[in-house]
Write a protein that binds this DNA or RNA. Sequence first.
DNA 1: TTGAAAGCGCTAACAG
DNA 2: CTGTTAGCGCTTTCAA
Lengths: 361, 361
Amino acid sequence: MVTLADVARHAGVSASTVSYVLSGKRSISAPTRERIQHSIDALGYRPHAGARALASSRTDVLALMMPLRTGLYVPVLMEIAMAVTTTARSHGYDVLLLTGEEGPEAVRRVEGSAIADAMIVMDVGLDDPRLPHLRAAERPAVLIGLPTETAEAADTEGLDCVDLDFEAAGARCVEHLAGLGHTAIAVLGEPPAVYERGTGFAARTLTGFRAAASSHGVGLLHRPVDGTYAAVAAAVTRVFEERPGTTGIVVQNEAAVEPLLALLRHQGRAVPEDVSVVAICPDQVATHASVPLTAVSVPAQEMGRLAVERIVRRLEGERSGGTELIAPRLTPRASTGPAPAPAPSSSPSAATEDRRGHGGH
Amino acid sequence: MVTLADVARHAGVSASTVSYVLSGKRSISAPTRERIQHSIDALGYRPHAGARALASSRTDVLALMMPLRTGLYVPVLMEIAMAVTTTARSHGYDVLLLTGEEGPEAVRRVEGSAIADAMIVMDVGLDDPRLPHLRAAERPAVLIGLPTETAEAADTEGLDCVDLDFEAAGARCVEHLAGLGHTAIAVLGEPPAVYERGTGFAARTLTGFRAAASSHGVGLLHRPVDGTYAAVAAAVTRVFEERPGTTGIVVQNEAAVEPLLALLRHQGRAVPEDVSVVAICPDQVATHASVPLTAVSVPAQEMGRLAVERIVRRLEGERSGGTELIAPRLTPRASTGPAPAPAPSSSPSAATEDRRGHGGH
DNA sequence: TTGAAAGCGCTAACAG
DNA sequence: CTGTTAGCGCTTTCAA
């Protein structure tokens, strides 16, 4: 193995000089620098990561905690992971992948063993058991997600968070439909398991849906669904029985998109003439669906990139930056249109919540 | 930070004794061991990964090279990655995730910087530029995939490989259909890009398709397709124009599965009465398809697990284990049945290759 | 069964 | 602008 000492000898300088050429932490005369650089190339020298970590207390590694739990849409996670590794590399960092359910234990492991300089934490839950450990930890952490139901109630003290503003995203979807005259809307949400474990983004989106429905006087039904045709069919069928006047559907569940469109087709409901559909999903899914979908895009890449940039800044000494929410962007496509002529009478009175009807349909 | 020296002091022993308790590399009297263990717990000691790596030349990290290139089905990759991290943890290893197109450079980086003890390499191409570097490297590597078109022609000297036997898998699909009396078969393959860059598994499957078609006297058309409805429709339509007698379709492209089934439905071709469909895909996809698919399953988890177990054995001193192919398992489901009554005359003469017909249809 | 001590390869004062 | 030197925390001979 080629060591720094080898390079120093080869170049006829001291070890520290070589080290400083590598780190750039003090100025070296052009001639020596070139000579050293030449020796480095000639010998094919690479600094030993462990030695460097020991001496400098920096590993140049970021830990990515990505528990892959049921109900999550894998391609989005993967896209985030890719963006994280790519961005990290461009800043000189490698990425250690932590999946699995180690939870708090993994946090302690990273911290205690100095395995990574910082952590990026995904799939954040409302009462995430990792958070106390993250706050207590020396190393900085950034969450992709928020551990709260609303952006305001952010119990985010000492934690950096990056995420899509799902609350605004949910509201935006409802607003879009309300603006087109729809007054009865159904939401096909993430699988039940996702809500049950209190996943932050799902909870926040729901908050947004409800707030917008309330303020626009729109009726709203919310149905978690697994991403199977059967589950979607059951949910949608029930929705139309319970609220025959439903003309707008918001779907926040990538796996449910095609089943939904197939079902509507099957039921003879035209999109968007009979039913308008808005999705919250990656652009890729929205544009490739069998009907191009009006959608708020989930900017997976941007989330990964922002998280890394945030953490890198913190590692460079910057103070905690609090919460950074990406503003939702809704792109109108072929799946939404004006509400069809309404049934004879109707007098939408006030806000409406799940399973609590409001008069008029 | 709690160091080994702290523990030693706390327990009233020397540093080396603590180290040996941790590594178990020499016998320690029960009393001292317990005392030390108690100190470790009391102080919350964790060995410093960098220091350990420096002193022992072992990092307890495995590098996973997973370039995410276009045309690959992400959930399968993710499943492999998960299996890798999980299995690795159960053996005491962490996983460093390398995506991106660094290729050979990444291999050198891992090797030179002693960043990981071994590498697991995915998305192996026929003439993969990383291979020479892997052979030259000190650290062991295992490929998930084969860099060859056939299992025999394995230019696998000094490389460990783990994979599904895609060649046998391809053959198995054709045999299954041939056994049901189908004599004209079409293959919907991976996206063109996958073949163009010489991805090993796609090439090997094709080899298997062709060999089986040849030996069973079955006509075979092969069409790479992107996973879009339009691409599938174009390919299938052309197939039925070129070989109207086609009654069997093999699909090796997860994204094309639903578009294919939708198209057949749309064309009024019943599955399996008019057309039998066999897939090569994860069980998950086969069972959740709108028609449960007869399929050779892609055992993503098993591949990841085997790769790690293989590499762990090598790190423990075992010699290179060569190539290990998982035997394909075809599960009959609802998508295949006997070939429909054939057109009046036919005299299948001999083997048939892509785009070269054989008489009788 | 335990200790003492010499590094592993690098960084970062401290000196010049 | 460059060299000297003292560790970083752990493993592992060599001794006892």
